[in-house]
Design a protein around this nucleic acid. Structure first.
Length: 285
DNA sequence: ACGAGGTCCTGCGAGC
DNA sequence: TGCTCGCAGGACCTCG
């Protein structure tokens, strides 16, 4: 599931193939991924557009051309890729957006479950959209103090707060689990009640893990592919995600799994993360 | 204002 | 073996 490292990876990989290129032709297999724009207007705007910039903001890939930005939010199974060769039948099946470039290459947005979204925003729309997003965790200006201020705004469990894109962007379920484990923090603790030392550890863990995951081109659990269609490799370094019931790599205690926080799978170690039994809902093995 | 829970969408694995 | 069912979940929405 593309979080910050996965989106950063695909953006870095498609950028060289896209910048300076003009889109000659574009087609959509489904329009249910579009938000705030009709298929007709979306395709009309893309045709003839010259790509000026390809960047990442939060978990979005942002392709800028002239007055517009194509904002790609890959959701669970989306990825942005460029292709030299014609698409195989299997590739074609999930290629939601196909855009032919002026050098003959193909830009595709591939998405199996289509939880992902495509937006076409003008300058004003983009400013409004971006205003709702929190700070970038890998920006040098992102400090433990800033994280603390963000956390003070919510009474939610720290895991949910960490995934709240208004407080800090880019962290989804995988890296929230990993960062909390690395920092030794109980995921169910209220974000606004963490002490300074915990916030510092969590801040450091988020930065370190996201950076390492980018170096490994992201985590491929099931569907994620990089901008060249390859899997990432950070899944090999995950300590807790998808490991419920398996031994903690630090102390050997079987890792616990629960859906008690925000109905999403939380995996943690009772011993290393100091969880108080029964504080939040039922815990599964 | 905040939090809980439903919704989208498809593939896959568990269970019968 | 073949089917059904529930789960995976990021962001957004409605309801209480």
């Amino acid at each position: 599931m593309p979080e910050l490292p996965e989106v950063e990876t695909m953006v870095r990989e498609v950028r060289p193939a896209l910048v300076g290129r003009t889109i000659r032709e574009a087609t959509l297999s489904h329009t249910d991924v579009l938000r705030g724009v009709t298929g007709r207007r979306f395709l009309t705007t893309l045709r003839g557009a010259r790509v000026e910039q390809v960047t990442r903001r939060a978990k979005h890939a942002v392709i800028r051309f002239g007055a517009h930005r194509l904002v790609v939010q890959p959701g669970m199974t989306g990825s942005l890729q460029t292709q030299d060769a014609p698409l195989s039948t299997a590739q074609r099946r999930y290629a939601v957006l196909r855009a032919r470039l002026d050098d003959g290459r193909l830009l595709i947005y591939r998405d199996i479950r289509r939880i992902g979204t495509l937006r076409l925003l003008d300058e004003r729309g983009w400013r409004a959209y971006e205003a709702r997003l929190g700070p970038e965790p890998l920006d040098p200006s992102f400090t433990p103090a800033e994280l603390g201020v963000a956390f003070a705004r919510t009474r939610q469990a720290v895991k949910k707060a960490l995934m709240d894109q208004r407080l800090v962007v880019g962290v989804g379920n995988i890296y929230a689990n990993e960062a909390l484990y690395a920092a030794g923090i109980d995921p169910s603790r209220r974000a606004d009640r963490l002490d300074d030392s915990s916030i510092e550890r969590l801040h450091a863990a988020v930065v370190r893990i996201l950076t390492a995951a980018i170096e490994s081109e992201g985590s491929t659990i099931r569907d994620y592919q990089t901008g060249t269609g390859q899997p990432g490799s950070f899944q090999l370094e995950l300590k807790v995600y998808d490991r419920q019931g398996e031994p903690c790599r630090q102390c050997g205690t079987p890792l616990a799994g629960t859906h008690a926080i925000d109905a999403r799978m939380t995996v943690f170690c009772y011993r290393c993360q100091g969880r108080r039994v029964g504080e939040v809902g039922e815990v599964m093995k």
